[in-house]
């Protein structure tokens, strides 16, 4: 038990210090633009199909769940607004973070872990470059920036999914489905989703780069790093979801003076 707690604290401390190092590198020695854009492109392309497809079905699922309840109250006209609001505030960012964790997080961790155990990261240092600047920062920023593109795509696809399911399952036509979205999906809701997406992306990018960068012990060590990345990011994303649900709501209300 003590060993597990000690290992957990070491991991958390390591991640925090690693994040600090990344931020310091970002300020002092930013990475090359070409490396940054290359990573944004790779991450986006890697996840675009799965995020789009998952977004479509999440919208469809939310619509089915809300339709079952709202039909009883004769409030199907609000179906589109409520399903979209729930997706924007909660399900969308969470879903995209999980998608990125499974695809990009595992890939990044494995790639960096392999570079570590095959001494490529040591070679970078010996050749006069900073691995944080050359390898970590472009991947970190790539994940953070791409998550916004993927969030936008996921949300658009969820609206499509909801529209189609609303028409097929509840008999709500497209125009009616879209009518209440602008009134129910308010600016605080959108900001809430954006803040969550940003926080989840930071958590994911920090954990996957940290686990890959500190991998040891050959192929087995890389495998362990990938597994730890998947487990840690899932757990941390859920914890940070709980945390940001409170904090972002309070912040948005204070900033916008909303009730």
């Amino acid at each position: 038990m003590t060993k597990v707690a000690s290992s957990l604290l070491t991991d958390i401390g390591g991640c925090v210090l690693f994040f600090k190092d990344i931020m310091r590198t970002l300020i002092r020695k930013p990475c090359r633009r070409v490396d940054f854009f290359d990573q944004v492109w790779k991450v986006t392309v890697q996840s675009v199909s799965t995020t789009g497809m998952a977004g479509f079905f999440v919208g469809a699922i939310m619509t089915v769940q809300f339709a079952l309840q709202m039909k009883e109250f004769g409030a199907l006209g609000f179906l589109g607004g409520l399903a979209t609001s729930a997706t924007v505030r909660e399900v969308g960012p969470l879903l995209i973070a999980f998608m990125l964790s499974g695809k990009v997080g595992a890939f990044t961790s494995a790639e960096l872990g392999t570079m570590r155990v095959t001494e490529q990261i040591d070679a970078i240092r010996c050749l006069g470059a900073d691995p944080l600047q050359e390898m970590i920062l472009p991947r970190f920023l790539g994940i953070v920036v791409s998550s916004f593109f993927l969030l936008t795509l996921g949300l658009i696809m969820s609206i499509f999914g909801g529209m189609i399911m609303g028409a097929a399952f509840a008999g709500v036509n497209f125009e009616e489905y879209l009518r209440h979205i602008p009134t129910i999906v308010t600016l605080p809701s959108v900001l809430n989703g954006i803040v969550k997406c940003f926080v989840f992306a930071l958590v994911l990018a920090t954990i996957c780069t940290y686990k890959g960068f500190t991998a040891t012990g050959g192929a087995k060590g890389v495998g362990q790093a990938v597994v730890k990345t998947a487990v840690s990011t899932m757990v941390c994303i859920v914890i940070f979801d709980w945390l940001t649900s409170f904090l972002s709501d309070i912040t948005v209300r204070v900033v916008l003076g909303a009730q």
Partner: peptide
Amino acid sequence: RRKVGMVFQQPALF
């Protein structure tokens, strides 16, 4: 590192 170059056990090529 300008004076001392190292060749690693593995090729360590990118």
